[in-house]
């Protein structure tokens, strides 16, 4: 499996991860190596084998629907890089 620098760009965009030109070629090489090493999996016959997402098959764990106190707003906002009027403040999402 070979990842091209263009593949790396595409995946980086999906992951919202800025990368440098140097990252691009290094990741293309390193990720190709890793994927190549793991190719053996593709050869395994897994016909009829159900996937395991979680090992102990706990299903739909329910709790009582009871309100309980949550953190006060100022504590929740205390780590925010920017806040305003009790909200998280972010940069513009849509161009104006």
């Amino acid at each position: 499996m070979n990842l091209t620098p263009e593949d790396v760009d595409h995946v980086a965009t999906l992951a919202r991860l800025g990368i440098t030109a140097e990252d691009r070629s290094r990741f293309a090489e390193q990720l190709s190596d890793v994927l190549e090493h793991f190719r053996a999996l593709q050869a395994l016959d897994t016909t009829g084998i159900s996937p395991t997402a979680q090992v102990f098959n706990l299903h739909s764990v329910m709790r009582d629907d009871v309100a309980r106190p949550s953190l006060p707003r100022e504590q929740v906002l205390a780590n925010a890089p920017r806040q305003e009027d009790g909200f998280f403040r972010v940069q513009a999402v849509l161009e104006t």
Binding site: R16, G18, N79, P81, R82, Q91
Partner: peptide, 22 residues
């Protein structure tokens, strides 16, 4: 947005996320 490092110098949200994570 909620905590941690933030690229506050970027004016566009998407570019800010890219830069923060980079």
């Amino acid at each position: 947005i909620k905590y941690g490092l933030a690229a506050l110098d970027e004016v566009d949200m998407t570019r800010a996320m890219d830069a923060t994570r980079q």
